[in-house]
């Protein structure tokens, strides 16, 4: 894209968003089914990335265990819709009810976890270490607990149905997931643009100062943490539906690190940039692992280093920033060293 075109789009964020939306809407018409299957999964990862963007990018909470929420959502979805949870059957075990339950369970878990983390005044590296430990524990539990499938995970998750018809074909599935992605994006954007979002940003920037203005900062962190977790939980539930499969790798440390990389590469301060970051890295992985087999990790690592050095706001962060960014100070700061 030429510089002039980029500038024009940056000046018209709505136009840019519509171009991106149109791209996704038209994709199944152009791509073959294999690519549509791939992209459907990437969209789910993109939703997951937006959840972390809220928590890390907007609230400044560096969470090393965001996959715990993704995996928990997936497992709840799988267990409930397969009728494996004692006492929950019938209408409650339908796909949509299971999904709502998955999101609710994840949000509740995040509120509880957040209560201890943020009223315990954990921040920075300590918060990272605790969340990291939780993700490792979650993965071990998932591996060792045979009722929920142990190492092999759970398969045969029933499809969702809409208007009495089951969504099995890939193109309807793609549009369903894409609608979820759009819905989550609009919801999250609304939250960050609200007065609540401004307070969250203020807490990220200078927590003590926000507290002196009378804000119970722990409360704001818990709420945004729970929202970000619920979004990840929704993504997990959708992932279970799309792949009809859940496994311990989805809940663990490896997945938590991956989502951090997507969001960092895309641009953690901008929802849409985080979303596209997930798509970019997954697409790169798919392409490069075919060509380079396991050397692709090396390329990803180098790419990551390059991004940190040359695009501190992420590959898409600058382009998609909704408002004028701190160009003077930020660019000046980077140029001094």
């Amino acid at each position: 894209m030429s510089n002039a075109a980029a500038r024009t789009l940056r000046a018209h964020p709505l136009a840019l968003q519509l171009v991106i939306l149109a791209g996704f809407a038209l994709f199944p018409l152009a791509g073959d089914d294999y690519l549509v299957v791939e992209l459907t999964q990437y969209l789910v990862y993109g939703i997951f990335a937006m959840g972390l963007s809220l928590v890390w990018g907007y609230a400044g909470i560096l969470c090393f265990g965001h996959a715990v929420f993704f995996g928990l959502g997936a497992y709840v979805m799988a267990l409930v819709s397969k009728g494996m949870v004692p006492g929950i059957g019938g209408a409650l075990a339908s796909g949509w009810a299971a999904m709502a339950l998955a999101v609710a369970v994840v949000a509740l878990f995040a509120v509880l976890l957040g209560y201890f983390l943020f009223y315990g005044r954990l921040s920075g590296p300590y918060l990272g270490i605790v969340t990291l430990a939780i993700s490792v524990i979650a993965e071990r539990v998932a591996i060792k607990w045979y009722y929920i499938g142990g190492y092999n995970g759970l398969t045969g998750i029933p499809p969702l149905s809409l208007g009495g018809r089951e969504i099995i074909d890939i193109v309807p599935m793609y549009y369903l997931i894409a609608s979820f992605a759009v819905g989550v994006y609009l919801l999250c954007r609304r939250i960050v643009a609200s007065p609540f979002g401004t307070i969250v940003a203020a807490v990220r920037d200078n927590e003590d100062r926000a507290e002196f203005f009378g804000y119970n900062t722990a409360y704001y962190k818990i709420v945004i943490f729970a929202v970000g977790a619920a979004v990840a939980g929704l993504a997990g539930a959708l992932f279970a539906v799309v792949t009809e499969f859940v496994s311990p790798t989805m809940i663990g440390f490896g997945m938590s690190t991956e989502v951090l990389i997507w969001v960092a590469l895309g641009g953690k301060e901008v929802l849409l940039a985080s979303f596209l970051g997930a798509l970019l890295v997954r697409a790169m992985e798919s392409f490069l692992s075919d060509v380079l087999t396991y050397y692709w990790f090396l390329i990803l690592g180098l790419f990551f280093v390059a991004c940190v050095m040359f695009f501190p706001r992420g590959v898409f962060g600058r382009l998609l920033a909704a408002r004028p960014m701190a160009t003077g100070a930020k660019a000046g700061g980077a140029g001094e060293t």
């Binding site: 401004t198 203020a202 926000a210 203005f213 009378g214």
Partner: peptide
């Protein structure tokens, strides 16, 4: 103690909503 990453406008917006002005609804405008 200003919020460096926020705009000047947002810096006023943060204390403006403190106190009992309005409930901090996530979807407030």
């Amino acid at each position: 103690g200003v919020f460096d990453e926020l705009t000047v406008y947002e810096n006023i917006r943060v204390p403006f909503f403190s106190g009992q002005r309005q409930p901090m609804l996530m979807f407030g405008r």
